[in-house]
Design a protein around this nucleic acid. Structure first.
Lengths: 196, 196
DNA sequence: CCTACCGATCGGTAGG
DNA sequence: CCTACCGATCGGTAGG
């Protein structure tokens, strides 16, 4: 019975976090009230605190869940032994899939991390910097091995990360454009450019 | 005398708007209070209302000033008669300069437009959609004229706009990397790719 | 430009 | 899970 109760608490907390991700994405963290969130869940605001510790804790859960998923994937890529262009293609496709599959969570992690309280803010920024440095290292090795053209690795990484992040705008538009076509065109653009 | 008073009011409002842009960028619009802004200016919160109508009005001023600057430049490019790659390069460089020269304002326009009240929100989104459609048209013509490779124009525009927007992250880091080198590398990456 | 203040709303708690 | 409520803070106004 205790097990079932724990299970129920877990799913309820997960449900709150999921609904919160959607709300925070639409209105922003600071502009979202716990009363609004409670309305969406279908309870009174005070009842939320049986499942979560604070509003801020919800944001922490979202941000660090996303960070962990990206870090886990990066480690797989680093150990794959593929060449630079293959690694970058793999990373780009993963970012695209994450943005499309976990839109609310990735969006919130990208936009609302500033509202994290310390020490979570510092921890989050450190993880992001480490992630970015790993990508820079991958590009840097590619330049040295002459597998890709000579470019400042930092600029290439910034361009790639920013471009895939921009898919948050696509999600809202739903053009008559298949996901696979979009993904392939963006990979092609970022790796091979526009010039014929 | 009336003229001088109007002039002083004008600059004071401009000073408030400028300081607000920095504050809104750092903390977000909803998390920034008028009392904080007043502290930065060096007056009491109530005194701000001699120069501005509301907190929301400040955000409107910032967002539409930025939108107007981009629209004005776009019209120049459209009437320039250059080929597609030249037009795109011009647009990319302008976005980069805007991001570096008017960092706070561009950042706030990019991140906080959601907090605009109607009808400003609808107006802003319409302007942005029109701007985006103009860029899509430029790429589309380039594909038809075979000046650039075959790609979904929407994806190319999304990739370019997202990449230049990502320069907001660069601003904070101040790598030992000259602006010109960064600009040239990003233009090169977006137009010619990474592949040798 | 300031003092004084308002009603609304916020995140969160007590107690059942 | 709810009712009832708290202190803090918010954007903004009145009046001088």
């Amino acid at each position: 019975m205790a097990k079932i109760k724990a299970f129920r608490n877990g799913t309820k907390k997960d449900a709150i976090t999921q609904k919160a991700a959607g709300l925070f994405r639409r209105k922003g963290f600071a502009s979202s009230s716990m009363r609004e969130l409670a309305d969406i869940i279908g309870v009174e605001a005070s009842s939320l605190y049986n499942h979560i510790g604070s509003k801020s804790e919800i944001l922490q859960t979202i941000c660090f869940k996303v960070a962990t998923e990206f870090n886990t994937h990066l480690q797989q890529v680093q150990g794959s032994g593929k060449d630079t262009l293959n690694k970058l293609e793999n990373l780009i496709r993963f970012h695209i899939h994450m943005m499309l599959d976990s839109y609310d969570e990735v969006f919130v992690a990208n936009h609302e991390w500033k509202q994290l309280p310390e020490p979570y803010l510092g921890n989050f920024l450190e993880q992001r910097k480490t992630y970015e440095n790993s990508l820079i290292e991958i590009v840097s090795i590619g330049v040295k091995k002459e597998e890709i053209k000579n470019i400042h690795p930092y600029v290439a990484v910034l361009t790639i990360l920013s471009a895939v992040r921009g898919l948050e705008f696509w999600h809202r538009q739903k053009k008559n454009l298949a996901v696979e076509a979009l993904e392939n065109d963006m990979v092609n653009h970022l790796l091979k450019g526009l010039t014929k």
